[in-house]
Design a protein around this nucleic acid. Structure first.
Length: 384
DNA sequence: TCTGGGGTCCTAGGACCC
DNA sequence: TCTGGGGTCCTAGGACCC
């Protein structure tokens, strides 16, 4: 989807069209106050919008920028405070995940009516298997891609960009060729001309660390990566990742489109408005900790899962991260049980330094009803 | 004036078992 | 005096993605 969060906000507030706006920030008490202050001042801005980016004082990042905001150099994952100077008058809107999820469901429903084999890749992205879908083989896939774009636009007034290719790796690269509203088709023979000139970082799976290392080794583009011998890459990046890098550079990818998957873990975490100290801010920290446990417990219950591994995550004021976890004898979704186990985890971690973030995670998930069916069988097995 | 939240997967060492 | 080989589970950290 093109600038998904921002596009959804533009549907609600068409008066933002053409203006630089960013989605991000949080919902702290101060955010709410700021919003109230602006409510009466700018008739064009909705009640809960924060208006000027320069006036924001929170610790958030930009999740999405409208295309006019991108022209100012604003983009996702940027710190809001740090980048406010790039465009002080940009309008800051709070994230509304519930709304984005509603639109996410709608556009995915449309896709499923055209092509039933779809892999969910998050709120704004999917892989679609065109192989056996109507129009999927016409005009190199363009017929189906156009039908999907049009169907999504009619249902949601949102636009998307589609890449059609022989596999997921290439399709993902192709989808970014012509944003927004683009359709790009990459055939197997196009790898050299269309893919090799791209920066390695464009490949899904080459992140900042790997890209940095590749650059140190004199490799900037995918073509330069393809030119290296497979064993050489394996010597520098490990057997598995080195081989994968080589395959990726040659456009090889055999992964299927996966239509269903089970969650492995659920977590809740929060960055504090100010850094907190385990001793000086004990009460506040404890309150937040309990709340996080209650939230995960509620998430588990709502979705019908129980988990066995309880974990915590801390981010210190210097941004270092520590995690601890503990596996229980039995699966649980109970807030108090999670709180107790998480509390024990917390005791195993150094707490001298100030904390920026606290998180609680429940892993080793099993569906609630599967567990009920499983347990008697386990008891029987032990009898023999 | 620094840098969100919710995930997945991989690696590597150690415990433990047969 | 000299200690295997394979497997699973647990734990901590880290890379990466949306």
């Amino acid at each position: 989807m093109d600038a998904f969060y921002a596009s959804v906000e533009l549907l609600r507030y068409p008066q933002l069209a053409g203006l630089p706006a960013v989605i991000g920030g949080g919902r702290s008490a101060r955010d709410e106050q700021l919003a109230a202050e602006y409510a009466g001042r700018l008739h064009a801005i909705p009640l809960h919008a924060f208006a000027r980016l320069a006036d924001y004082r929170g610790r958030g990042v930009i999740t999405t920028a409208t295309y006019p905001a991108r022209a100012f150099g604003l983009g996702s994952a940027m710190g809001l405070m740090k980048n406010a100077h790039l465009c002080p008058d940009a309008i800051l809107l709070p994230v509304d995940f519930a709304e984005y999820r509603r639109f996410s469901r709608r556009f995915k429903e449309v896709i499923l009516t055209h092509a039933p084999v779809m892999e969910d890749r998050g709120v704004d992205e999917v892989y679609i298997d065109f192989t056996h879908a109507a129009g999927g083989q016409e005009e190199g896939g363009r017929t189906l891609a156009q039908a999907i774009q049009q169907g999504i636009f009619e249902a949601t007034r949102l636009t998307c960009s589609i890449g059609v290719a022989p596999n997921k790796l290439l399709a993902k690269l192709a989808s970014e060729f012509d944003k927004p509203r683009g359709i790009s088709i990459v055939q197997p023979d196009d790898v050299q001309a269309l893919i090799w000139p791209l920066a390695c970082r464009k490949v899904n799976g080459i992140g900042p660390k790997a890209d940095e290392k590749l650059k140190r080794l004199g490799i900037q583009t995918i073509g330069e990566l393809a030119a290296r011998e497979r064993p050489w890459l394996q010597a520098h990046f490990g057997r598995a990742y080195g081989a994968w890098l080589h395959d990726a550079a040659w456009g090889r990818d055999e992964r299927p489109v996966v239509t269903h998957s089970e969650p492995v873990s659920m977590s809740r975490e929060t960055t504090f408005e100010r850094d907190l100290h385990a001793v000086h801010d004990r009460a506040e920290l404890s309150r937040i900790f309990t709340e996080l446990c209650q939230q995960v417990a509620a998430d588990l219950a709502r979705k019908g899962y129980v988990g066995k591994t309880i974990g915590i995550k801390l981010r210190y004021d210097d941004f270092r991260i520590a995690t601890r976890d503990q596996t229980l004898a039995q699966h649980t979704q109970d807030a108090a049980t999670i709180r107790r186990a998480a509390g024990l985890c917390l005791k195993r971690v150094p707490l001298q330094q100030r904390l920026r973030l606290l998180g609680v995670r429940v892993g080793a998930l099993v569906r609630e009803q599967d567990l009920a069916a499983q347990q008697p069988a386990a008891v029987n097995a032990e009898l023999f």
